[in-house]
Amino acid sequence: MIHVRGLAKRFGTRVVLAGLDATMIGGRVTALLGPNGAGKTTFLKILLGLARADAGTVAVGDRLLDGSPEYRRQIGYMPQIARFPAHLSGRDLLGMLAALRGDDMAPDLSLADAFDLGDQFDRPLGVLSGGMRQKVNAVLAMAFRPSVLILDEPTAGLDPLACRVLKDRLLAERARGTTVLITSHVLPELEELADDVLYLDAGRAAWAGAVRELERHTGEPTLERAVARLLAGGAALAVA
């Protein structure tokens, strides 16, 4: 679960988040949407501890963000563009992360098997194709059995088959009770996955609620159309 209250952040004079309230529930997939500059990236960075909020509270799982890094143990993060050290292999990186985290449990590499990564997992990341790197990226995000998954454009660069595998995995995660927060430009893909929508505009939650609710609210048959309506600003916005 992710719970956010009154989250505010500005860079210089530019207000990026202006008192964001939002809740993402375990066992559901939330699509994070909004126009460019709405504060999506900043929101994710604050969740991940890459940036600090000026005001507001954030709770991830059972922990309040207070400067301690421990809460991140629950998070699996898949960055949008994975630029890894070129000379390390996926397995090296995994080993390094495992050592740094100091977990006792063995990493979960079932996704690597599902992707059929094979020896690609042992080759330096620098020589892998973009799609292959993205697969490694996904494997690393899932490897430590996170209870919160944050995925930034996860399917970018993946072939349809790999997309399918990843989606299956995400659905399985959802079934296990994981909180999944996902951004994507491919809205039909989200239609298939997302239970809820968090729509940001000008640093606030312009719309938050179930996908069905949004479609009903806008009178559009699909998420893509509903979001297009939101973007056009045509619908009355409300936080459900």
């Binding site: 890459l50 301690s68 890094p69 991140r72 050290p85 985290r101």
Partner: peptide, 14 residues
């Protein structure tokens, strides 16, 4: 930079 960001998302103190 990228590695730093990758590592910052881990449970590691800055």
């Amino acid at each position: 930079r990228e590695v730093t960001e990758l590592l910052l998302a881990q449970p590691i103190a800055r």
